[in-house]
Structures are given as C-alpha cells and as structure tokens.
C-alpha cells in the first residue's frame, strides 16, 4: 500500500513539473504585467523599476529557476494584485471548487445509478429508450449554454434563484450544481446502464435468482458492485473534468473557486497565483486518480491481489 503510494507519487513528479513549466512559459507570453499594474502615464523609468522589482527583466530560464527554487521551499511567490502569498490564495479558493464538484458528483452518481439500473433492468423497453435519449442529450449539451439559459429562466424571468454569487445560501448552489451535473449525469447514466446490462445477464445473477433473490436484491446485492468498476473509471474522469471545467461555470456564476481564481489571474497577469492554482489542480487530479485506484482495490479482491504481486 505504502509502496504503491510512493511509486505513484514519484511517477507523478515529472508530469507535475511539465505542467508547471507549461503554465510558466505560456503565462509569460501574455505580456508584461507592468502595462496592467501601472497607470498609462507611468514613465519608462517607473516601468523598468516595476519590471525589475518583480524579476520580469531576467531571462525566462532564470525566472523559472528562481521560481522552482522557491517552490522547493514551499514559497510559491506573491500575488501582484493583492500582495498575498499565491499558495494561500489558491488554497483558500480550492474548497469552494471541491464542494461544488462533490455536490455535483454525489447528485450525478445517485441519479445515474438509479436511472441506469432502472433502464438496464429491461433493455430496449420504453423506459430504457426514454432514459437513453435523455442521457444522450444531457451528455451532449454544452454547460455554458445550460448556465446562461438557467440564469435567464430562473433568475431573470422567474426570479426564484440568484444570478450568481454565494450569498443566497442553499439557493445559490442550485444553478451551478445543476449546470455542472447535467453532463456527468448523462454520461454516467449510460455507463451504469451498459455495465448493469452485462452484470444482470451474468451467470451469478441467475444463481441469485435461483435462490429466490428478488429484482431489487439482485441489483443491490449482486450486480451493482460488479457494475461499479467501469462506473468508477468514468466518474473519476468526470470529476477531473469538473475540477477543470469549473473555470467556465465558476466564472459565469461568480463562484469563488479555483477556476475563477485562474481566470482572474490570467486576466490580471498574476503569474504566481495562476501557477499555484494550476499546480494545486494538477495535484488534486493526481490524488483523485490514486483514490480511484484504491476504489478498484476496495471493490474487487482480484485487483488487490494483482497489486500485491
């Protein structure tokens, strides 16, 4: 177990470094922050002073080495906008994204398991066809469109939900979660249905029926756990997508998460904060993948044995 974790941590170091490198270089292509942070009337001398103070006049490899040196000491730089430590800002924004993703995935998994199992129970029945059509549609609709239509309908026309922000308590969660959940519900429902169709036709289900197991018991006590592995893979991918895709939805709904922080940092050429936010996201995706692998092992003894061997 510890060996496994150590191995995974080591193999993820290089990808994390590459991500950091990419962001570092790309961010600097957007231009010198001096033109954003100094008034238009600033003299060339003032600009030069700002640039030098923040190290932007060094060659890029020099800047990178300085930055990496800092990272090794857990110093991720400071924000140009607020002067705060970049790591503090990223860590402060992250829980909001995580909560949104968690709420979304819980809803998506519950709906997908219920609808997917129900559709799988009678393949090609009317119920199955309806749920296939709906889930296909849900999986194909772009989230920004859903978000804008949702705001228009529920916030502008009906006025029952806030347009954005987190000030309205539970109500402020409804539109962002619904927007984020639509695609995962659609995709996951189809995966659960497929996995359940094959699990329900497996010989062990016949065995369970031969001992008098009813419809519900066959699903809950036999088939579901077998169908969980493929669903887990896709749910993991979707969660990764949520953490990344939060950029759009958080921006539209003014949700103070990591996605919004990234966008604000890009717009503000706040390089250190952007790098910290991307690094934190990448680490969280690594952690998520480890959790998914642990999930497989938890579900299936054969995976545990293979991991030991």
């Amino acid at each position: 177990m510890l060996t496994f974790l150590r191995k995974r941590a080591l193999t993820s170091l290089l990808p994390l470094l590459l991500v950091l490198l990419g962001v570092f270089v790309l961010a600097r292509l957007t231009g010198n922050p001096a033109s954003l942070y100094l008034p238009e009337s600033a003299t060339p001398a003032q600009r030069a002073a700002f640039t030098e103070r923040n190290g932007f006049d060094d060659p890029i490899w020099r800047q990178l080495l300085d930055y990496l040196g800092g990272v090794l000491q857990f110093d991720f730089g400071t924000s140009l906008r607020t002067g705060e430590a970049a790591s503090t800002m990223a860590l402060r924004a992250f829980p909001a994204t995580l909560q949104l993703a968690a709420a979304t995935m819980i809803i998506a998994i519950v709906l997908a398991v219920v609808i997917g199992s129900w559709a799988a129970y009678r393949p090609n029945s009317i119920a199955d066809r309806i749920s296939s059509f709906l889930s296909m549609t849900a999986a194909s609709v772009p989230d920004f469109w859903i978000a804008i239509m949702g705001i228009y309908l529920f916030a502008v026309v009906l006025g029952v939900l806030p347009t954005s922000g987190t000030n309205a308590g539970a109500l402020s969660w409804i539109l962002p979660v619904a927007t984020l959940a639509i695609r995962p519900v659609g995709v996951l429902t189809q995966v659960v249905r497929g996995a359940m169709v094959s699990a329900l036709s497996a010989p062990y289900v016949r065995l369970a029926r031969s001992t008098g197991a009813g419809d519900v018991r066959v699903v809950t006590h036999q088939a579901l756990r077998n169908a969980a592995a493929p669903a887990l893979t896709v749910a993991g991918d979707l969660t990764v997508g949520l953490v990344n895709g939060a950029v759009v939805v958080e921006t539209i709904f003014g949700w103070p998460g990591i996605g919004k922080l990234m966008i604000d940092s890009i717009v503000g050429r706040d390089f250190a904060v952007l790098q910290a936010a991307v690094l934190l996201t990448a680490i969280s995706i690594f952690v998520l993948n480890v959790l998914i692998d642990l999930g497989y092992a938890l579900l299936d003894a054969r995976v545990r044995e293979k991991a030991k061997a």
């Binding site: 497996a202 029926r209 001992t211 008098g212 579900l299």
Partner: peptide
C-alpha cells in the same frame, strides 16, 4: 416462485467459475 426457489427447488449450474460472483466472498 421466489418463495419456492431455494427452499423447495434449486439448481446447480454448470460453469462454477462464472456462476459465482467474482466480487463477493
């Protein structure tokens, strides 16, 4: 039928590898 399946009538299947559920003890 469910009430009879088990206590009154039961079946031994052919393929013992697939008839048992791989993810349960």
């Amino acid at each position: 039928r469910r009430a009879l399946a088990g206590p009154e009538i039961a079946i031994v299947f052919q393929d013992a590898l697939t008839a048992l559920n791989p993810v349960y003890t």
